[in-house]
C-alpha cells in the first residue's frame, strides 16, 4: 500500500481554481521535489499535506486513513522564513519539540527530564553542524545556520513526513550546496518521506527521487482563474539512491538497525 494517496484533489478559493484533479501515490521514503511556475499551487499542495488547508474536493490519505486536518507531530515543516522561534536559544528551539508533547499543561520539562531533552537536542544540533552555537539566539545566526536549526527542530520530532517550502530560496549558492549535502545525508539516515517545493529546477533534479511538475493544462484567456494546475510530469530520478534505499529496506530489521546507528 502506498504511504500517501492523493485522490482527485481540487483546491479552489472562490472562483479561482488552484489545483484540479490531482492524483498521486507516493511510497514511504521517497524524496519528492515539487517544481512549477509561481502561483501554480505547489505550495498550496504542501499546505494541504501539512494540514494547514483542506482540499475543496477529493481526499488525501496517509496509510489509508484521511490526513489529520491540522498540523501535528507526524509532519515536520521548514519554511523559507519565520521558521525558528526568535525568543529561544538554539538549543531550546530544538529541545522545545521534546518538551511540548510530554508536558501538555506546563509546556516545559523540569530537572532530569529537561536535562536529557537538552542533551538530546544538543546531539541533534551537533549532527547538523550547529554544535558550537547552542546558546545563541536565532537572530545571531546566518540564514543558512537558521535553516540548519529549522531542520534539526523538525527532525527531533522523528516525523514520518518532512515538508520543505523553498527552504533554501534565500541562501547563497555555496551555502545551498552544503545544505543539499546535509539534507541528503539526513534523508538517507532517517528514511523520511520528503516533499520539497523549490523554484530551482536543478535543485529539484539533484535532490529528489521523484520530480513532480505542476502546470496548468487548460487555459481560458477570458478567465485566467477558471482552470487549475495539475501534475503534468512525474519523473523518477536518481534511481541509484532509490535502489540503495529499497535494498536497505529489504534487509532484516536487526541489521538495518545497525546501519542506521552507524
Amino acid at each position: 500500500m502506498s504511504f500517501i494517496t492523493v485522490r482527485n484533489v481540487w483546491q479552489t478559493y472562490g472562483d479561482q481554481v488552484v489545483l484540479e484533479g490531482l492524483r498521486l501515490s507516493v511510497a514511504e521514503g521517497e524524496f519528492c521535489t515539487l517544481v512549477g511556475a509561481s502561483g501554480c499551487g505547489k505550495s498550496t499542495f504542501l499546505r494541504m499535506l501539512l494540514g494547514q488547508e483542506r482540499p475543496s474536493r477529493g481526499e488525501i490519505l496517509l496509510d489509508g486513513q484521511p490526513l489529520p486536518g491540522e498540523p501535528d507531530r507526524s509532519r515536520g515543516i521548514v519554511f523559507q522564513r519565520y521558521t525558528v522561534l526568535p525568543h529561544l536559544s538554539v538549543q531550546d528551539n530544538v529541545a522545545l519539540g521534546l518538551e511540548l508533547p510530554r508536558a501538555p499543561l506546563a509546556g516545559r520539562l523540569f530537572g532530569a527530564a529537561k536535562r536529557s531533552a537538552r542533551a538530546e537536542a544538543a546531539r541533534m544540533l551537533e549532527r547538523v553542524g550547529l554544535g558550537h552555537a547552542l546558546d545563541k539566539y536565532p537572530s545571531q545566526l546566518s540564514g543558512g545556520m537558521q535553516q540548519r536549526l529549522a531542520i534539526a527542530q523538525a527532525l527531533i520530532m522523528k516525523p514520518r513526513m518532512l515538508l520543505l517550502d523553498e527552504p533554501f530560496g534565500a541562501l547563497d549558492p555555496g551555502i545551498r550546496k552544503d545544505m543539499h549535502t546535509l539534507l541528503l545525508e539526513l534523508w538517507q539516515e532517517t528514511r523520511l518521506t520528503v516533499f520539497m517545493v523549490t523554484h530551482d529546477l536543478a535543485e529539484g533534479f539533484t535532490l529528489g527521487t521523484r520530480l513532480l511538475v505542476f502546470d496548468k493544462v487548460r487555459h481560458d484567456p477570458q478567465a485566467p482563474n477558471a482552470y487549475g494546475a495539475r501534475i503534468t510530469y512525474d519523473i523518477p530520478l536518481n534511481t541509484d539512491r532509490r535502489a540503495a534505499r529499497a535494498a536497505l529496506d529489504a534487509l532484516p530489521a536487526h541489521i538495518t538497525g545497525g546501519v542506521q546507528a552507524a
Binding site: R73, R75, I77, L96, P101, P104, L105, G107, P159
Partner: peptide
Amino acid sequence: IKAQTLGANTWTLILR
C-alpha cells in the same frame, strides 16, 4: 504552525 508540528496544544502554544 511550526509550534503545532512540535507537538504544542493551544494552551502550550500560547504559554511557550
